[in-house]
Amino acid sequence: MIRICYFARFREQLGLAQEEVPCQPGILTAEDLLAHLRARGGVWAEALPEGDRVMTAINQELVRPETAIRDDDEVGIFPPVTGG
């Protein structure tokens, strides 16, 4: 299983703080996981549009989107913030 945590704006938009997704052949990287979530359509496609920057962490370490995900990993999905 992959445990996913949604933070801040994503938590609000998706109405969900965390969930578990079974490991599957199509989800090898953080990028794949985002594509999998986006394919759910509706609010998922709106919150995680293709090309929009999302910060991803695996087991509390910030990673590039192409980083591999393994069974039992916790993936955090965070919105980037640049305002001030």
Partner: peptide, 21 residues
């Protein structure tokens, strides 16, 4: 990297390593 969600007042601390690229 510290992240704050003030709506739930949750903090996260992520480790940030140098990107070799």
């Amino acid at each position: 990297l510290l992240l704050l969600d003030a709506a739930t007042m949750d903090w996260r601390s992520l480790s940030l390593n140098a990107d070799p690229e």
